[in-house]
Amino acid sequence: MGKYLLRRFAFMIITLWVIITISFFFMKLLPGTPFDDERIPEAVLENMMAQYGLDKSIPEQYVLYLTNVVQGDFGVSYRIKNRDVTTIIAEKFAPSAIIGIHALIISVPLGIILGMIAALRRGTAIDYAAVGFAVIGFAIPSFVVAVALQYLIAGNGLLPSALWGTYKHVILPSIALALSMFAYYARMMRSEMLEVLGQDYIKTAKSKGLSRPVIIFKHAFRNSLIPIITSLPVVILFTISGSLVIEQIYSIPGLGTELVKSVLSRDYTVSMGLTLFYAVMYIVALFIVDILYSVVDPRIRVAGGSE
């Protein structure tokens, strides 16, 4: 186990290094500089570039960036004067995470319940309605959902149409974000449940004369949950890391909008910082998936997790 963790950690460092390198050079390929004023005289522009070390050659900048990152210094934003990248990410993460967590709390349990009901009532009108909802709910682009909710609900003054600050502001964006996940989990749960219900051990349980609730909850339900639980870490990661569409429409200061803003304004340090942040989260999420697998399904040992 210790050796496994060590190898895993070493690989993580290599991964991060490769990601830094790839995204660093990609960002330097972007046309344009962070400074866009048409009137700024060349002399001043040169001083601006020098102020941020952008006058150095790209390999030099790369080495410098890498050295700083190793020391935990992710630099300052070019767009907003003197704002520390770490602080920006920490601040932006909270709203994204709050909305993401709410969306998860709404969507996952509801999706599981709906999927289960549909599976148990297979072939009935309820099943068709649930499947229809799940498929369409997944297919509507999130910005249409967000705009429609804003128009229909906030337009009537029931909830604030945008901005951030109170609990009321959390509700609409969370629902908008939750819809497609709700649909996704309903579908997933339905098909997992159907698969489990067709397994031999369920037949065995039936023939043993176990009652239906016991079969459903003790055997079918628990086993259908395995793939859902193991998929959760990555889904949670994507959910709390912010949806740029939802954040933009509801004007929420989250990671998603920050990412787009930083790339479009050539705010290299912030874009790089965010890329790294996402990468670290992703690697940690994968690690948790591996551990979860070994917990929920003892046949899979941690050491064999990569296969």
Binding site: A97, I101, L104, I105, V108, P109, I112, L225, I228, I229, L232, P233, I236, L237, I240, V284, A285, I288, L292
Partner: peptide
């Protein structure tokens, strides 16, 4: 956050 959520898998 993640461990906490995964543990209760969407319960209240």
């Amino acid at each position: 956050v993640m461990v906490g959520l995964a543990a209760c898998s969407g319960e209240e």
